[in-house]
Nucleic acid binder design. Structure first.
Lengths: 253, 253
DNA sequence: GTAATTAGTGTAAATCATACACAAATTGCA
DNA sequence: TGCAATTTGTGTATGATTTACACTAATTAC
């Protein structure tokens, strides 16, 4: 199947779609390239994988070098390997996404890689059609994966600060799913999952009724996962007849 | 991000978990290796990617060289790149799975790669713990992916002959999901999806009441997909109290 | 103290999933 | 010829889940 003397000049890199959540906006960390190819274009952070480095390690390294963050949630998404995707040679790239708390973000200015780093909202990224290389495709694949993930894992907890309100959590889900959710149904559901702890604390300094604060219950989550629980989400928009039809088909054997 | 002079001696391969369905058994195509490393061990079919070849093309080529099959359903699953996964050098591999009809399988005996090729049932593969390289991990990842896929795409149609009975289709689903399904509920559901055409033909030559034959309705499927339909499956085993609890959590916002 | 703002809460109706049993159609064989 | 064996094909009632929806409570700013 493999034969070392068939090796040819090639390399592999990792690229990382780093998601953060900030003031009701889901954002992605991009770098403005200073050098050719694609000088001046926005690109996803990435790097070649070192000879003695596992792929996941390389993706983690990129994140650490760029944002000073260790041990964040990281997931491999897809490998992009079109022959001509890189102008300087045959370079395939393994795409990852990661979830970070923007409030913990700690840019290392001395990074040689970071010419100009920017948290861009996903809406904006979706409008920028000329990211470097095939990074539009990579972003798209990773965002889609996140949207699927959020339905089966309470992915939100990596993105929010340690204490948060139910409204903040709901807004996070709405940003990820790019849809609106019904407040009462959302609360009913998420509370029934037994993955939140009511901190018996209140929000302070807001010009309206203060909200209760919650934290993520790691134990409750582990138990739920062990029991094979899945976390599903559905939008709450009013359904018209045409839309209702779909749902008939979406049901189960 | 990348710099051609940083290239080091490395390569990438594709490995392919080829699923087929035969007499109520889901099977995988394996090759018995004739040469070191791992001589005598079962391995997944794969090959190095050629310098001017896209990844998907390479995966398709492996399939064509080995089984004489073109244009089959092929999907990238995961990339495996542990530093020491290959004894002869740094070789990462991009894993694919494909779905083929065993009745269309057409082995090319002159293939230099094929020492000994065998369709092994997934149950058996799950018991064989010493596939070559990290192929146990690769198989596992691909089978899991198939199990997820089958819930959101009518994946079965690539695996069955053009005309089939509902019972055959049900057995296929049961093999993939490794569970039993309720006959009446399965039929109700799959027929409601509008992806099957009743051929108004009957099975012949069976020593019992003959079943109706169906074919896959490509148009109906395309339409359903366009409408954002999802195809979900659930097992039909009796639920005891402990199990019922999970389902409460599995519901939707 | 009043306006503005957001938090927090319950219920009824519709839909969907599940559990379950028997008659019909064919072949093989006595 | 007909009876045993086998598999097909079909409907309904129950419980669970999802959905839609509106008002009161708590706070700040002025």
């Amino acid at each position: 199947m493999t034969d070392t003397n068939k090796f040819f000049k090639s390399a592999f890199s990792v690229d990382n779609v780093i998601f953060g959540f900030d003031d009701s906006d889901l954002k992605v960390l991009l770098i403005k390239r200073g050098e050719a190819p694609f000088a001046g274009k926005w690109a996803l952070p990435g790097d070649l994988v070192y000879p003695n480095e596992d792929l996941d390690t390389a993706a983690g390294r990129v994140l650490e070098e760029l944002a000073g963050l260790k041990n964040v949630y990281l997931e491999q998404v897809h490998t992009f390997g079109s022959v001509n995707r890189h102008p300087l040679g045959r370079v395939i790239t393994i795409a990852y996404f990661s979830l970070v708390r923007i409030d913990a973000y700690n840019p290392i200015s001395s990074s040689t890689m970071a010419q100009s780093v920017h948290w861009m909202s996903v809406e904006k990224v979706q409008e920028v059609k000329d990211l470097a290389f095939d990074h539009n495709d990579i972003f798209h694949a990773c965002f889609q994966k996140l949207q699927r993930q959020v339905r089966s894992r309470p992915v939100g907890f990596e993105l929010l600060p340690p204490k948060f309100t139910l409204t903040e959590l709901q807004h996070l889900y709405e940003s990820v799913l790019q849809t609106e959710l019904d407040k009462r149904n959302f609360r009913k559901k998420i509370l029934s999952m037994d993955i939140l702890v009511d901190l018996k604390e209140m929000q302070a300094g807001v010009a309206h009724r203060p909200a209760k604060l919650y934290k993520f219950d790691q134990e409750g989550y582990n138990k739920a996962v062990a029991e094979g629980m899945s976390f599903e989400l559905k939008e709450s928009k009013p359904k018209r007849d045409a839309e209702k039809k779909k749902e008939v088909l979406a049901s189960h054997f």
